[in-house]
Amino acid sequence: MQIPCPWCGLRPLDEFAYGGDATKKRPTGKRQADTSAWVDYVYIHDNPAGRHREYWQHVGGCRSWIVITRDTTNHAISKAELAPPDSRGGRR
C-alpha cells in the first residue's frame, strides 16, 4: 500500500503510523463532561466495511497527522488531507 501524504506525495505504508477513526470530535468545555461522552469518544469507533475516515501520521517523513479516506474492503484510498482540527478550541 502507498499513502498519498499531502506534503510528501505517494509514500510507502512503512513510513506511516495508524491513528484510527477520524470521525470523532473530542469533547470540549470547561465543565466536567459527562462520562458517557468521553467513553463514546475514547472507546466507540467507526468501523465500517467500506469508506473509512482515519488518522495516519507520516512518522517516517514530515510527521504530519493526516486524514485519509480508505475503503476497508479493498484498501483503496480515495482522499488524503491534513488533519483538520477536531474541536473548535480557539485561543483561551
Binding site: 501520521q57 497527522w65 474541536s87 478550541g89
Partner: peptide
Amino acid sequence: EFCHQVHWPEL
C-alpha cells in the same frame, strides 16, 4: 504531535 495538530492547533 497528535494533540497539537488535531486537538489544539490554535496553540
